[in-house]
Design a protein around this nucleic acid. Structure first.
Lengths: 352, 352
DNA sequence: GGTGGTTACGTAAGCGCTTAACCAACGTAA
DNA sequence: TTACGTTGGTTAAGCGCTTACGTAACCACC
């Protein structure tokens, strides 16, 4: 691990100027193939790794996009995001970025140090994708004054590029399924973190469906908790302990619903015979739990991909009009809602 | 999104030199509190986000660590790594890095563009964590000539810092469990990707256990496939189709084992009554499948954390002796190996 | 009143690239 | 022959920071 070599050493060794070395590295024109070979040979011999900092400084482009997401471990339990959701978003972002040769800088924002971290990250990237509540809306606005920002899963910003899923529509659709197909009327909603835009939108969709069916529409969710198994388990226990025994429960996400299944099994309540349960997201586990979890599929990876692509577009075209992308969601019927197996996994979908 | 402001503007606005601005931003000493306030006020008014490139160039430290991992989607199926494993490693790396104010740059290396991408990433970071087979050993060595590299889950490098899990010991232990506790003697191993160091080490542990029990030791795994559900499903089907009906199957990882459960259910083979099954990793799904999957827990997130910490240590101390960290694994007994429920989840462990 | 130490700055030289501007040599057409 | 484009380079001025070094002001102490 000797010190890194520089463009000067490569230039000297290959007998050309640094400008020529630079051109060769960027596949530009203006040099003979003999020169190219000399330069590449010298670079290889020296094991030259061009400095990203110097490049970034000179060209004012780092080739890095930043992804800010909420801290998953250190935040209060009731505030937690779903880890699996975040993982998929990261994966999608990574894919979209490497497709154009960029890399992704990730950082989880913690309530206390989050601001500082976010500004530090902002200095290192060409643009930023900010997930949901990983940063205060005020800070998001501040950052967007000095670099392009795409907001993911947070519709509070009317002036920034936006990517999200149709949470409201998906929640409405699955609730309507419970009403129309299964005939349930006593249905409650269990929310995720109180300020989660996703959770709020899903509750709104839930209410839409009840209203549409002429059922009583609650002001508040029946319970709430972090977007985690523990959160769902606790919420379900609280519900049962409160003497409440709805016919069906719509959960804010899959992990909560899965936690609820655990609570229901412990309480010897049969699903879906006595209580039907649905989730949201369609994480990988959902098909594997017993009973398999009916849910709403959200294109998590695509959300990550689209966010980064939107960011790259914005970088290429700073003055384009602001865009807002809402990706469709899709109901996935499985046993936990009361659907019979053969009705669920075989509806001509390619993947379930 | 006006152009980003610079340290010069901040210096001018606050009536000091850029050196003083720089000092204030780094909490150094050598300025009055009045000056500090002026500088911070000016910076806030301008919404100044210091350029990471300029900082990196001047201080030769980017505050970024890179994480290279194998591409999960675009590689051939038989070569695939477990996505969940990678996600956890990323999470651990992120945590360790942000703990010291650094950020993590992630990039998946694709076979074709992998080299190029890796060198591009290398220029942008202070050091690199390279997972398993995300880069050829030759390229790893080349990169390590110009920046610190920690190798994760790949014991082929005797001169680089290394982090891994005790795959061999874990595989041996769970195989011994099948032999000693359950009395199985007809046990086979289904491997992951042919060149995966993890898979190879686990097969070695499997053989250790058979040899230790005086059973016949196979030269080759009974089957193999990608570290995915599809890979495991296919391998299990092939096994059954081949007329092979072992009493127990040790799989290279959890996802393969879970895929195998699907194949076994389809073939109406009861688990564990007719065939016992074990996995490796203890991913989140493992507890949720039916029957719950006996496996070997691997501290995936800690692997990520330790890799980054090792890298940071190396950065701080370039001449320290090379270190090699092997984290312990732990057998997790669940129904799929034949253990009864109450024997499995309640062995005084805090989490299962 | 000189010496020395401390505090609070300013000056300016890089860090390793990119890129605009310039230039020499060599056809090639008028 | 001159003029002019093309090819294949070079020169040098930044990009926005950090930091070694210099220095002015102030205080303390003989």
């Amino acid at each position: 691990m000797a010190d890194r070599s520089t463009i000067y050493q490569v230039a000297q060794r290959s007998g050309v100027s640094t400008a020529t070395v630079s051109r060769v590295m960027h596949d530009g024109a203006g040099f003979s193939s003999a020169t190219r070979d000399k330069v590449l040979a010298a670079a290889a011999e020296l094991g030259w790794v061009p400095s990203g900092s110097a490049r970034g400084l000179a060209s004012r482009r780092t080739g890095i996009v930043g992804l800010l997401f909420p801290d998953l471990d250190r935040s209060g339990e009731a505030e937690q995001e779903s880890p699996l959701y975040v993982d998929e978003v990261i994966r999608g972002a990574e894919r979209a970025a490497t497709a154009v040769g960029d890399a992704v800088l990730i950082a989880a924002t913690h309530t206390s140090s989050g601001r500082q971290l976010a500004f530090s990250v902002a200095g290192k990237v060409d643009g930023l994708v900010v997930m949901a509540r990983s940063l205060s809306n005020q800070d998001i606005v501040t950052l967007s004054r000095s670099l392009p920002v795409v907001v993911l899963a947070n519709n509070a910003h009317r002036r920034l590029d936006l990517v999200g899923a149709d949470n409201r529509g998906g929640a409405q659709e699955i609730t309507r399924h419970l009403i129309d197909v299964h005939g349930y009327t006593d249905i409650v909603f269990v929310a995720g973190p109180p300020r989660s835009p996703d959770s709020l939108a899903r509750f709104a969709g839930f209410r839409d469906a009840l209203a549409g069916a002429g059922l009583a529409v609650p002001d508040q969710p029946a319970a709430s908790g972090g977007f985690t198994e523990a959160g769902g388990e606790r919420a379900m226990r609280a519900l049962l302990a409160g003497g409440r025994r709805p016919r069906a429960v719509v959960f804010g996400n899959d992990e909560m619903a899965i936690g609820a299944l655990t609570a229901l099994r412990a309480a010897r309540v049969r699903v879906p015979a006595e209580i039907a349960v649905t989730g949201f997201d369609d994480i990988a586990v959902a098909r594997h739990v017993r009973p398999p979890l009916a849910t709403v599929r959200q294109p998590m990876r695509e959300l990550g991909e689209r966010s980064v692509r939107l960011l790259l577009d914005r970088l290429a075209n700073p003055d384009a009009p602001r865009r807002s992308l809402i990706l469709p969601t899709q109901v996935v019927q499985r046993r936990s809602c009361g659907c019979r197996p053969h009705l669920t996994e075989n509806r001509g979908r390619t993947s379930v």
